[in-house]
């Protein structure tokens, strides 16, 4: 027994030393804030385009947590973020009304499109009314992929179905042609591609993914497809540890003429993805 003791002790000490040596330290110090936002802003590359120069100028690092709108707001509600940037106006207003956030401001907008297989079995190509297009998809029993994850895109999709006339309750009808994926935009586009289904997507994610997919933009331009992004601070009275001052500086920057111009200058494949709020309304 005693012969085995020393090696075992050394092993234990070694393991503990390894554990301690990997300690990450307190989360990056005072000079960092946490931004909870949606995957569309992160995946498109917009955020690094905006945040890198700002961090360099101010010395404040921004930790970006890119999740669905529902979770981004939940993170703000729990005080696990300092600033929230999302796109679901009704949820944002509820968030402010409940006292979880303050100082909501419009930042920018982009648009949603309905994409689907080039063969377009429901014949919606070129339609201008998203509600009618959805009704045609339902009427033709064509496959439709729903995010089904409480994201801003999912919430908007459900709002659009309300304009689909007799098919307004289609998402909750249990129809086997309505696929509730419960996944992010990228996987849903993959699923639509594989199953030759229709799907509602933000334009940016679609542009980034289209090269590998056999999908086309079929419906666009309906005012109901416009997608406004709002930013708000986590209420410092609820969460005293929130880094509100630094977060407000970022919010000021995003809504300043300089920040707005930078949003408008962002391009993907030569296309404007996000329109500055100042420019569009």
């Amino acid at each position: 027994m005693s012969r085995a003791f020393l090696p075992l002790l050394l092993l234990a000490v070694g393991a503990i030393a390894l554990f301690v040596s990997g300690y990450d330290g307190p989360a990056a110090g005072e000079r960092s804030i946490t931004l909870a936002t949606t995957t569309s802003t992160e995946n498109s590359g917009l955020l690094s385009h905006l945040l890198e120069p700002w961090s360099e100028a101010t010395g404040i690092q921004v930790k970006v947590i890119a999740v669905g709108t529902g979770r981004a707001l939940a993170l703000g509600e729990r005080g696990d973020a300092d600033l929230v940037l999302v796109h679901a106006r009704s949820r944002e207003d509820a968030f402010i009304a409940a006292g979880h956030g303050i100082d909501r401001r419009d930042v920018m907008w982009n648009d949603f499109v309905i994409v689907g297989p080039p063969s377009d079995p429901a014949g919606i190509r070129g339609m201008r009314d998203a509600g009618k297009a959805l009704a045609a998809i339902a009427a033709n029993r064509a496959l439709f992929v729903s995010r089904g994850d409480d994201s801003g895109t999912h919430i908007r999709e459900l709002e659009l179905w309300a304009h689909a006339g007799v098919y307004a309750n289609y998402p909750s009808s249990g129809a086997d042609t309505y696929l509730k994926a419960g996944q992010g935009m990228g996987p849903c586009l993959t699923m639509a591609d594989q199953r030759r289904a229709y799907v509602l997507t933000d334009r940016g994610t679609f542009l980034a993914a289209r090269r590998t997919k056999d999908l086309e933009v079929l419906v666009e331009g309906d005012p109901h497809l416009r997608n406004a992004y709002g930013a708000m601070l986590v209420n410092p009275q609820r969460h005293p540890h929130a880094r509100t001052d630094a977060a407000r500086r970022l919010l000021d920057h995003l809504t300043s003429p300089e920040g707005q111009a930078r949003i408008g200058a962002f391009r993907m494949d030569g296309e404007v993805l996000f329109h500055p709020h100042a420019a569009g309304d």
């Binding site: 529902g70 939940a74 249990g174 696929l179 419960g182 996944q183």
Partner: peptide
């Protein structure tokens, strides 16, 4: 595919509820 009432498992249910913030 995490499809509701088709291929959604217990583990993928957890991921989805997390992504919703529930």
């Amino acid at each position: 595919g995490n499809l509701e009432l088709r291929t959604r498992t217990l583990a993928s249910t957890i991921v989805l509820d997390l992504s919703k913030g529930n």
